[in-house]
């Protein structure tokens, strides 16, 4: 599949949301003046009566969505992940999650992908903050096709959800026929010696690391944990019981993200070892995306090294 052209997950959202809007006249997009970079341009052109723009006012966007949802609308509030989590945080808690309303927060620029914009725009806390709020579902797809599948499922599943997409074109991992279920990890390959659990853009790193490890006779199970909440506890439990050695990989602070969620399961089972690869609890800077990943050890080489140390 790696020969296919690279394409960003935000583009998968931009494509699928148009199809969904055509199917459901109650589906609305609420932009916050960054529709262009969040890929809602086609939706705005094709479905102007279902498109709103509240301007640079994310908090109000969240509240407006809550009010619309009480009247049967299915609003997708669209912004960058840093604003869709932190700027809107209390509105999401009070007006969307507490009343359990059918609002989707759909965000581009997750993780450090807004690299050259610097720390202000890099979202490294969003998943941690939002997975702490009751009733919230948190999703981060790994490629174009899985984004389309998961956005479709999110639109057709009741409840508050945070969907995290990224800026950069990434390799396509899945064909159009692969199915995904919210809350259920997608196993890319099975293995005996190490479990690599990743989400979003870092799934490709896990796949590359698994290939490198295979050359040294180390067999890796690779899981795409696209849903961080509700976590697929069964898949993590199986990895702990059957392999016992896990590396989590994420473009998010190592605190409170995917790694922490996996650690919570392993700790309650009282066995297994988990190593977390992710942002080292530090703010980023303006730099190329790959450099920011390197600064935090989010690299194939580091994953391979950790996997070997665990053998």
């Amino acid at each position: 599949m790696s020969e296919l052209k690279k394409i960003a997950t935000r583009d998968g959202f931009g494509k699928e949301i148009v199809e969904l809007g055509k199917e459901n006249p109650d589906l609305l997009v609420i932009d916050t003046d960054i529709g262009k970079s969040c890929q809602t341009g086609s939706f705005r052109k094709e479905l102007p009566n279902q498109h709103l723009n509240v301007g640079i006012a994310e908090q109000n966007g969240a509240g407006l969505a809550a009010g619309l949802a009480t009247c049967g609308k299915v609003p997708f509030v669209v912004t960058y992940a840093v604003f869709g989590s932190l700027r809107m945080c209390e509105m999401i808690r009070q007006e969307i999650c507490y009343p359990n309303l059918n609002v989707k927060i759909a965000c581009s620029h997750g993780g450090v992908t807004p690299a050259n914009d610097g720390a202000s725009h890099q979202a490294i806390e969003d998943i941690g903050v939002l997975r702490t709020i009751p009733n919230m579902t948190v999703i981060m797809p790994a490629d174009y096709n899985s984004t389309r599948k998961l956005v479709r499922q999110a639109a057709n599943t009741y409840g508050p959800m945070f969907l995290r997409f990224t800026r950069d074109a990434v390799p396509q991992i899945y064909g159009e026929d692969v199915e995904f279920t919210i809350g259920k990890a997608h196993q890319i390959q099975d293995g005996r010696d190490i479990a690599l659990i990743a989400n979003g853009d870092t799934v490709r790193l896990a796949i590359e690391a698994a290939k490198t490890l295979a050359k040294d006779g180390i067999s890796a199970r690779v899981l795409d944990m696209h849903t961080i909440k509700p976590l697929d506890v069964e898949a993590v439990t199986s990895a702990v019981n059957e392999i016992g050695k896990i590396i989590t990989i994420e473009d998010h602070n190592i605190l409170n993200g995917l790694g922490s969620a996996v650690c919570e399961v392993a700790a309650e089972l009282g066995k297994g070892i988990v190593k977390r690869v992710g942002i080292q609890d530090q703010f980023g800077q303006s730099a190329p995306y790959e450099r920011l990943l390197e600064m935090n050890g989010i690299t194939v080489e580091h994953i391979v090294k950790l996997a070997k140390e665990l053998q």
Partner: peptide, 9 residues
């Protein structure tokens, strides 16, 4: 903001 959402609906 919520009331505005209801009125807009």
């Amino acid at each position: 903001a919520c009331a505005a959402g209801m009125a807009l609906a």
